[in-house]
């Protein structure tokens, strides 16, 4: 089965423009906002949102990058080590409104880890969540404030988000489950 493309580069561009407007509208001002991208693909998304907000409102937004590897709840069961990169947020988070940005919202566990990581850095006035894709299957009571596209999916499907800055191309696709036969050969 072929990959099913659900967002093209043009779709992603329009969606990020809409989310930027929603962020401005919902917060009524951009004064206390910081956009924080969750590594890896949340970071370029946060930068694009910041560029959009700058274009619409003429204000330069602070943008940060957050690595939440050290806050994961599945560290013991991974059997391998996620690479930890630096967290880099240009200004203190205390009394600021943080918009966390990620590519896909799924179980909610990454968002939970990211919130814990943020709270260790200070006491934000509020934390909001912006995602490009919400694919459902939440395991924690977490929802996004800004959603690019709701894309109900099966658990065994893979959601592949590719962004120019990381992957060289802008595209969101669903990769169907490989046939059972192939899987039994994998990793043996």
């Amino acid at each position: 089965m072929a990959n099913k493309i659900i967002m093209t580069a043009e779709d992603i561009r329009r969606t990020l423009a809409r989310i930027a407007h929603e962020i401005i509208e919902f917060n009524k001002s951009t004064e206390r906002l910081i956009l924080v991208g969750m590594r890896t693909r949340g970071v370029p998304l946060a930068m694009r949102l910041a560029a959009n907000i700058e274009h619409f409102e003429g204000v330069k937004m602070p943008v940060g990058a957050l690595d939440f590897s050290l806050y994961r709840d599945d560290f013991n069961s991974l059997g391998l080590q996620p690479i930890v990169k630096s967290t880099d947020i240009p200004i203190g988070v205390s009394d600021r409104v943080i918009v966390l940005v990620d590519d896909v919202l799924y179980t909610g566990r990454s968002a939970r880890a990211a919130m814990d990581a943020l709270i260790d850095l200070g006491r934000p006035q509020a934390i909001q969540l912006a995602v490009l894709i919400d694919r459902g299957h939440r395991e924690l009571p977490i929802r996004a404030d800004y959603v690019g596209k709701n894309m109900p999916s099966a658990r065994d499907e893979k959601m592949q988000v590719q962004l120019k800055e990381v992957d060289g191309v802008d595209e969101v696709a669903i990769i169907p489950t490989p046939p059972v036969k192939e899987e039994s050969h994998e990793g043996s």
Binding site: R39, P82, I83, T107
Partner: peptide
């Protein structure tokens, strides 16, 4: 795992 972290791992 949550698929959003899978590529990195």
């Amino acid at each position: 795992l949550a698929p959003e972290v899978r590529p990195e791992i």
